[in-house]
Nucleic acid binder design. Sequence first.
DNA 1: ATTAGCACTCGATTTTAATGAGTGCTAACA
DNA 2: TGTTAGCACTCATTAAAATCGAGTGCTAAT
Lengths: 350, 350
Amino acid sequence: MELSDRKTKILEAIIKNYLETGEPVGSRTISKYEDMNLSSATIRNEMSDLEEMGYILQPHTSAGRIPSDKGYRFYVDRMMADREKEVSDMHEMVVQKADQLSELLKQVARLLASNTNYAAMISAPQIHRNKLKFIQLSKVEENTILAVIVVEGNILKNKMISTDQPLDDDTILKLNLLLNTHLNGLSLEEINLGLITLMKEQAGIHSDVVGSVIDAVADAIRADENLEIYTSGANNIFKYPELADNSKASEIINVLEEKNQLSELVSDSLSKLNEGEESQGHGIQVYIGSESPFDSMKDCSVVTATYELEEGMRGMMSIIGPKRMDYLKVAKTLKTLQEQLDTLYKKKEE
Amino acid sequence: MELSDRKTKILEAIIKNYLETGEPVGSRTISKYEDMNLSSATIRNEMSDLEEMGYILQPHTSAGRIPSDKGYRFYVDRMMADREKEVSDMHEMVVQKADQLSELLKQVARLLASNTNYAAMISAPQIHRNKLKFIQLSKVEENTILAVIVVEGNILKNKMISTDQPLDDDTILKLNLLLNTHLNGLSLEEINLGLITLMKEQAGIHSDVVGSVIDAVADAIRADENLEIYTSGANNIFKYPELADNSKASEIINVLEEKNQLSELVSDSLSKLNEGEESQGHGIQVYIGSESPFDSMKDCSVVTATYELEEGMRGMMSIIGPKRMDYLKVAKTLKTLQEQLDTLYKKKEE
DNA sequence: ATTAGCACTCGATTTTAATGAGTGCTAACA
DNA sequence: TGTTAGCACTCATTAAAATCGAGTGCTAAT
């Protein structure tokens, strides 16, 4: 069967109404719309077709219709297409510059949640081009030295290293030189066993220090493993009765708190974006119900967007809410913040 | 009225039963206990007295009795007193050493939550004796230098500083020397305006760099402001019907997620502990219902314990659950982890 | 092709009744 | 005088029944 213009119009009306009310919508309701000069009976017939086509469904016999995942998908795709419709009732939403990256991210998460009334999360940016830039050893205590490792993108890693014997300043200077001359500018792959052995040899009795430093370097470069994620507005889900029931709420809260599933989502979303699926504009992805990469979100929709803070430093933010979320507003909010983060970066550049 | 032995026994029986069932307990139930050779009528009379004295209350006429906050308090104090009763059915609860402090804390939070079936939180340790130990400037890029600041207790703070003109290695060395000779060993109070001005003068055209570094030092020393807190097991609250109702759950989840109230709790609890109120053994504090420092926890009990990771690095962990929580087990669990963290520290020392 | 009309369905809400755990009080008892 | 059996009463909870009404599908008329 074809999706006629009229069917489209009716489907859209159903979804819009359901988004607002959260209640199944009946034929009568639709027929009362001004620009819909049809009787409820006609609407019923069309609805019956739409149901057969899989766009809507009945929670039970003799109830109104609600959108199916397919129906939502139709709506979202359509909405994304004509995005010229600007939503203008945006809250004040200004990202303050923060000297701590973590503070900035927390702030953004909070903004997202409070503006949308859904739950929000944001991941710290992941680095892509991970080359070692710089190593600095310094003596902190008699038997303790501090290694500071700087990776491209100015990501830092600190490590305290205890030594058997006290090291004098001169030795530290030498080790510093040794490490920097050998390792600077290298990526993880380029630091091979041969190189490590060579350096250990040259370090003589201090080879254990070199070993520790190299471990720290490895940690610093693949920092994405312990991907930091910040969330906000988890309690917003209680505003939507369809999510507020105990077992569902518990599951969602758990996902938001334990974060490990979220980090999968981040990887998934980032990699999809990198594959160049930018067709849907500005890298905004929508997962509706069962489209989500994991089960625990099957009653929710997740809208994700990437952001780029500095060259190559990409992170992801997302909104988690009921399927009947206000997709338009959410997309708009995400986009606004995307732009703001972008601007913030540019300012920094100057 | 006096709390006779018999009243005490009955009160304890009521509370114990309520902790298990979560239901109001009636006179008949108590009278059936083997070691309680009294008829339900007698129990009723005693209960009536206990209610008058404020230890128990009726949710409504003709319902059984439940403990009041005062009743819980009585029970907890008593329980804390004879703590020789060891609970032995502890889960495997071994803290793995982690090189990242944050990983360690997350792990502990998770252990607490999974062992108790309540929500858990832990704060990163706060430093008390905050003296500057060491500053290291290094050049990272042409116009960027990195300042690493080490404070007593080996807390680190990094800051990237952009400069107007490029700095040569020699200048950096000089600034390093300048900063370290003047500032080492000083606390926040001791770094006064006079000293700062003096240093800026000596730095000549590079006074702005000195300024930036001093800012970073200030940040590092009062690091307690952005006190990190980790939570786990928030969804456990759904296991207790009296907390699982939407508005209450929402409030609790919110507190756990937004953390700022928790950090007040941390300060409160740490300062109380520092005042030497160690009478209740091992620094374990119990807040029952309205005893809690904030309203949002009025339906919960909060049990807190401090831990000490290294000399002077004290943090706080706590369990948040229903008033009818298993106080004994919770106290035991906290104590076990306290000890483990302690051991971990000692191992590190060797 | 559209629509008015009508019987029918079924979740939700309200009403009513039944249940039973628990109380307070009184009078009898040791 | 403290303890207890007995009884009338209360009231949340549960179950069952009745009612409501939004919504449907189908049919016959336009």
